[in-house]
Design a protein around this nucleic acid. Structure first.
Lengths: 211, 211, 211, 211
DNA sequence: GATGAATGAGGGTTCATTCAT
DNA sequence: GATGAATGAACCCTCATTCAT
């Protein structure tokens, strides 16, 4: 069991997360983080052991863990398989967009991938998430509601890829649709809604339409 | 007019591109690059002026330029608008997957974004590419073949997002579908084909189906 | 308010001053300084920010500040103007020869002059010092003791120029007068005395004689 | 016998002299010189063997050689000893101010002094010049026109020191006397004249006055 | 528990020079 | 005779971390 973190440590994690998302892991020095957090440079090694361990801590705390939610989803008899997929889509949209900063880091780190500990974490996460979607889609197929021959990872790629690419180009999206005047929360609400409709349309088409 | 680069310089660019895609810009030292390329460390400054300029050179040479191709596409009377969209989809798939290394760099850099020169390049590219897709979709709408109320940037997000996320998770995709035995080129051919079918299905559904 | 410097920092300043005076600013590397001072190379940036800032610190600490002394001199009713000039001459001789090392640096830097911060410091110093001599000479002129038409900057040039050139050629002077046997302090005492007599003679002649 | 230098080499020497006088020897790179002279960087090593040898060449060509002139001066029966000293003063003023650029280099290098070859050159020069002044003053003393107990090196220090310090502070002198409007040659003429009168007054006072 | 001083390694870049042509 | 490419060393500085307090 890990010891729980103090307020200062949590605040330090937030500061680091913010800087990592702007300048990358290698582009952010422990001095940058310490200065931005208003603490002594030595504290980062002191609190977390090293800069790498700090990053790992961020990943451990922020990694999406949809296990429980999906388990509930699978058991929920009030929803048909397509509705369950819809629910899953919304869970991902919410999970990614409400962790914008962290997800930007994740997008880089899964490419650059230098820290073995993080590689392991990411691999586990991908596998887990994939299994849940598998279960959900197979359920729909068994019930004859979804088509056969679904390329399941490709479904995931479209779901996560679309949300991620939207996240990275949020500013462009805002400008394109002339929503510069909207408050941040309002804009985020709109984006989530549109992503939801957009991806659900796609999922419905792929899962149920004749091709 | 820029002077054309020597064979050695071009080889250096490839080496650097490869390292940047694996370890990121900040995670790659000029000594790393020079060693991998078998040249003297000083040559990087000598050839390109600086590590940053080297990166810019990579971007300038590898940035997708689909301008001409799309122009031809728009004029081509033998294709209907949906076929034109299909063709565009294939152009993007081909453009990204045939530049895998560079595209991995791009995915990180558009998030981290420290180099103003590269920011400018990326912004131009995004705007250009967006305009072409706009033109294509509006053409289909005028002809009454595409639905109204298409969220065009969201279409792009799904296209590029899906391809990018597939690119980043190629290994996972290969393992999932038990294609470890395939040769690289064979596997790439399969992936491109599946991406093509997958995204065209999506585009057809969004552009033409009733929701 | 600047933080006061530690013993180590002060010792480092002395070491650097000595090396700069022997090999010049550009001819002295931070490694040279660190090695001579027996500290880690990184400490120079750590203590002073940069090699340039280190030089500025030397200048700030060693620049002649004769302001107060001259102010007292002007007010002192027990001395006539010529005696005041004599006193000023001794102040300069003492000020330069007791800072031999620093003054050698200054002689080079006011020619080479690359550091804007030091340029500013030197300009201020020159202007200040010039004003005081002005005041002193004008006082003598008003009292009818000094001739009119004194070329005041030329007086300064002779004062500082003679002392500086003596400083630079101290070894030659020692050899010429066969004073190799003298202890350093003894020799310095003799030089100061002779400079004092020599320049006072000159000043008396220029300020009071008919030409 | 040294081979004579080509036009390009001479022009290179001038360029180098100018840069050395502005930024010092160590502060000037061979690239700086080559660029300013519009030639290839490798040419400096090619022409002169090394950067150091280039500097030596500058010194050899520009070092004051007053030997012959002073010899003539000593023999000249039409001038009395004081007039001969006056003539010597003018020779130095002219010699220094007409080689402003080189003399600025010399002022630094005789302090920094890293190049043994230049040290030797400077030592020879100092000794030679000192001997000539010695001869001249002793002549005046034998004729009973000059006082005994003249500190001859101190005379030299005042002569060269005053001229040098004037040279280094030319801009200040120009501003002080509101001569900004003067053309360069005009201003130089004025300065030489004033230096001449000033130092001759000093020399006359020291050599002939009762103290 | 927390800090500022101090460290050795390594960062990107520039240096004077040499080499092949 | 002259050049542009190439080199290894050195440049100043910043890095993440550790140490003594």
């Amino acid at each position: 069991m890990k010891p729980s973190l103090s307020t200062k440590q949590l605040q330090l994690l937030d500061t680091a997360e913010s800087l990592f998302s702007q300048k990358g892991f290698d582009g952010t020095s422990v001095r940058d983080i310490a200065e931005a957090a208003g603490i002594n440079t030595a504290m980062i090694s002191y609190y977390f052991g090293s800069k790498e361990k700090l990053m790992e801590e961020i990943f451990e705390r922020k990694s999406l863990n949809i296990k429980e939610k999906v388990a509930n989803l699978l058991k929920d008899d009030s929803l048909n398989p397509l509705e369950k997929m819809y629910s899953l889509v919304d869970m991902y949209i919410e999970g990614i967009l409400s962790r914008k900063t962290f997800h930007r880091i994740l997008l880089c780190e899964q490419i650059i991938n230098q820290n073995p500990s993080i590689i392991t974490m990411l691999d586990k996460m991908k596998t887990k998430n994939s299994e849940y979607i598998n279960d959900l889609i197979r359920l729909g197929q068994r019930k004859g509601l979804f088509k056969k021959n679904i390329d399941i990872p490709m479904m995931t790629n479209t779901l996560i890829g679309t949300v991620s690419h939207t996240l990275v180009n949020l500013d462009f999206y805002k400008t394109y649709h002339h929503m510069e005047g909207l408050k941040d929360e309002e804009f985020e609400r709109v984006v989530k809604k549109r992503l939801s409709v957009h991806i659900k349309n796609i999922y419905k088409a792929i899962l149920t339409h004749e091709s």
